[in-house]
Amino acid sequence: MKNFKLHFLVIILVVISELIGTISIPLGAGSIVLLPMLYAMIFGILITPKFLKIANEKDMDDAGSLIGLTLMLLMAKYGTNIGPTLPLILKSSPALILQEFGNVGTVLLGVPIGVMLGLKREVIGGAHSIAREPNVALIGERYGLDSPEGQGVLGVYIVGTVFGTPFIGMLASFLAAYTSLHPYALAMASGVGSASMMTAGVGTLSAAYPQMEEMITAFGASSNMLSGLDGIYMSIWVALPLAKWLYRKSYRLKYGVLPDLTEDEKGDE
């Protein structure tokens, strides 16, 4: 907390990123949307000791220690947004409320492939969800962010920030242009629990269907809000236990033995 150099660097990166603003790059029938969060991530990588050496190893360690604190503040902010929108949640259709069951597909696909590629316990943190802020906080509380599970969820979080936002924008453009899916359905699908990804998807759809912009934004925001609200419970009760179970099965299939169990997993047996 007393590393003033670190705080100064963060402020500078945030100001520069916000000054650049959102950039939309036309691509075929749609566009790629670049948001300030992406610039901040790239600038943060460039100032590390491996590149410009503006930040040193101590700065990086201090920044890592503040992740939990900043996530707590973000979760508190989410909490203040949920209360006033409860009437909207109650009026939402079953499709919005039950959409988090789609997260199970991430586990079923990601865990076996990750194990086959040689990943170990990192795959539990990385593949139990799309690894956004609430999921990072969950893994940090359960295992610690210095654990293999923590490294997995942080790795996917960074990849999602760098590649997920433009990917969602391009995917929304492609589906809107070349499929018969309704724009409202695509807006709901954009609300995966990431504000940056939702903004990219909704922005692309709004540009394609300007006459529906208000409803597209409403569906996207509602979907994203519900993903943040019920997504964490889906991770706790369904996705994370399923990821751990599937990891054991996949590990045994590849190596012929069960993986070593941590104290947390022994308690699950």
Rank of each mutant, 00 (worst) to 15 (best):
residue 269 E to S: 11
residue 52 L to V: 08
residue 40 A to R: 03
residue 15 V to A: 08
residue 265 E to S: 01
residue 246 L to R: 01
residue 208 A to K: 14
residue 248 R to C: 11
residue 51 F to G: 11
residue 131 A to K: 01
residue 246 L to G: 04
residue 98 L to H: 02
residue 100 E to H: 10
residue 35 L to K: 10
residue 15 V to F: 10
residue 43 F to E: 00
residue 205 L to G: 14
residue 115 V to I: 08
residue 145 L to N: 02
residue 240 L to E: 12
residue 223 S to L: 07
residue 152 G to P: 05
residue 51 F to E: 14
residue 161 T to I: 14
residue 106 T to C: 06
residue 55 A to W: 10
residue 244 K to L: 13
residue 57 E to F: 10
residue 264 D to G: 05
residue 203 G to R: 06
residue 160 G to I: 09
residue 238 V to D: 01
residue 81 N to I: 11
residue 175 L to R: 11
residue 135 N to I: 11
residue 175 L to D: 14
residue 195 A to N: 07
residue 149 E to N: 00
residue 251 Y to H: 14
residue 107 V to D: 05
residue 33 V to S: 10
residue 105 G to I: 05
residue 252 R to H: 15
residue 236 I to R: 04
residue 265 E to F: 03
residue 38 L to T: 11
residue 37 M to G: 10
residue 88 L to G: 03
residue 47 I to P: 08
residue 98 L to K: 03
residue 121 R to G: 04
residue 83 G to T: 13
residue 115 V to E: 00
residue 35 L to G: 01
residue 176 A to R: 05
residue 65 S to P: 00
residue 169 G to L: 02
residue 96 L to M: 15
residue 235 S to H: 02
residue 264 D to K: 12
residue 116 M to W: 03
residue 143 Y to C: 01
residue 129 S to C: 03
residue 102 G to E: 00
residue 54 I to A: 08
residue 160 G to R: 07
residue 127 A to T: 07
residue 46 L to N: 06
residue 88 L to M: 13
residue 17 S to V: 07
residue 177 A to D: 08
residue 231 G to Q: 07
residue 206 S to K: 10
residue 235 S to I: 02
residue 106 T to S: 14
residue 48 T to L: 14
residue 161 T to M: 12
residue 126 G to I: 03
residue 178 Y to S: 06
residue 70 T to V: 05
residue 131 A to S: 15
residue 35 L to N: 07
residue 4 F to D: 15
residue 22 T to Q: 12
residue 29 A to L: 14
residue 87 P to C: 11
residue 106 T to Q: 06
residue 18 E to M: 15
residue 120 K to M: 05
residue 87 P to L: 07
residue 232 I to P: 00
residue 24 S to T: 15
residue 76 A to R: 00
residue 138 L to G: 00
residue 127 A to Y: 01
residue 235 S to P: 02
residue 100 E to I: 05
residue 179 T to E: 10
residue 147 S to C: 03
residue 118 G to P: 04
residue 88 L to H: 13
